[in-house]
Write a protein that binds this DNA or RNA. Structure first.
Lengths: 206, 206
DNA sequence: TTTGATTTTCAGATTTCATTGAAAATCGCT
DNA sequence: AGCGATTTTCAATGAAATCTGAAAATCAAA
């Protein structure tokens, strides 16, 4: 598909390639967003701010992404609540500018944190309530009720463990996914399969 | 909210409570499903089969959940692909029955596996493509291009690490989330915060 | 305080995704 | 092989989420 020249002849071409690459990233991140139950625009705004690294105002975002003012306003608010972007002000300029958190791990942590809050915590609460609904009976051959509780408990334990870990490592003050990942990466396990398709340099220094 | 009698007087009441509790579980799991980008019905079918533990045929599922035949058919197929339910046949009965995987960890592993396949892998592929789009230039003050690559690499490394771990621990032949969880639970980290709302027993024996 | 630029809100339009239901295909039993 | 029960498919429908745009609210500067 990408047939034409890949090496820029001049500054203008290089710039066009840069924008094109940014747009592709924005689109991918946006697609991810929808899979995650995050609105596409919200993910795109985040992608734009992250990949450019520059503070941008509402109008710039609107123009670059081609979305409405209201949409940008709501997306930006959510991102602020998630703690993955922040407001910056320019002296002598009324506009608000927004800039993305630049540390990837901190960003990933914020994402994980939000998802757990929205997905897992409510389930655990519901499981607790449900358990109280059908009291464990004493005598009787109520095998079914026993099974129900066994299964509820197992799920609760499973998700409970995951949640505890998540709070520990992905919480706002947690040790960081990075730490967790390092710990696990060293753990002795049978198989091992690299995913990179070859070209990946050497990682960062973060 | 749950004001009325909580201790069943007779078998019929006990049964009603059981069904009610099951329905609540099904509803919760279904809600989780939609947050995850899984169709509500698919999650509900799974919940029903898991919580009852019994093999059920299409008509029973339709009736219990109040959904169409086509919907059940499609949901069941996806669940089979995910590997979280299986077909069982009764001798002398043409119908197909379905039964849920009963091990929670194996179930959670399957879920994690599917999500990574659908969410993370495509992103990594896209990142690779995008990187090739804007070639790193040598001379020039192309700071922006350098930044772009730095950010792309960081994201790729982050998700790459997560993916590697996931394959290692959540893959079909992986060591299991359980193992990962145990490893992490022991890891020394500052804070610690219990999530359970009190009544949780002592964990299982799994 | 006034002013005009900037942001927020939200009812309605739009888009996206899940579900239905009936026709077509499949499949096990005799 | 033939038959009826069972499952699968998919166009049409319905429901839900998302987005727009303009009016209302906010806010910094003069």
């Amino acid at each position: 598909m990408a047939s034409s020249s890949n090496t820029p002849r001049n500054a203008a071409q290089a710039r066009a390639q840069l924008l094109e690459a940014q747009d592709r990233f924005i689109a991918s991140w946006g697609r991810m967003g929808s899979v995650w139950g995050i609105s596409r625009t919200m993910a795109e705004v985040h992608a734009l701010l992250y990949i450019t690294g520059q503070p941008m105002c509402t109008d710039e975002i609107m123009e670059r992404l081609g979305v409405s003012r209201g949409n940008v306003s709501m997306s930006v608010r959510s991102l602020l609540e998630w703690g993955v972007i922040e407001k910056v002000r320019h002296p002598g300029d009324r506009k608000e500018y927004f800039q993305a958190e630049q540390d990837v791990w901190s960003m990933l942590r914020a994402i994980a944190r939000e998802r757990i809050k929205r997905e897992v915590d409510p389930l655990l609460d519901a499981l607790d309530e449900i358990g109280e609904l059908a009291p464990r009976v004493e005598g009787q051959s109520q095998e079914e009720v026993r099974d129900l509780h066994k299964r509820l408990d197992e799920i609760r334990d499973g998700f409970g463990l995951i949640t505890t870990l998540a709070h520990k490592f992905a919480g706002p003050r947690g040790a960081g996914l990075q730490t967790a990942a390092r710990l696990l990466a060293k753990a002795p396990v049978g198989r091992k399969k690299s995913h990179t398709s070859g070209r990946t340099k050497k990682g960062g220094d973060a």
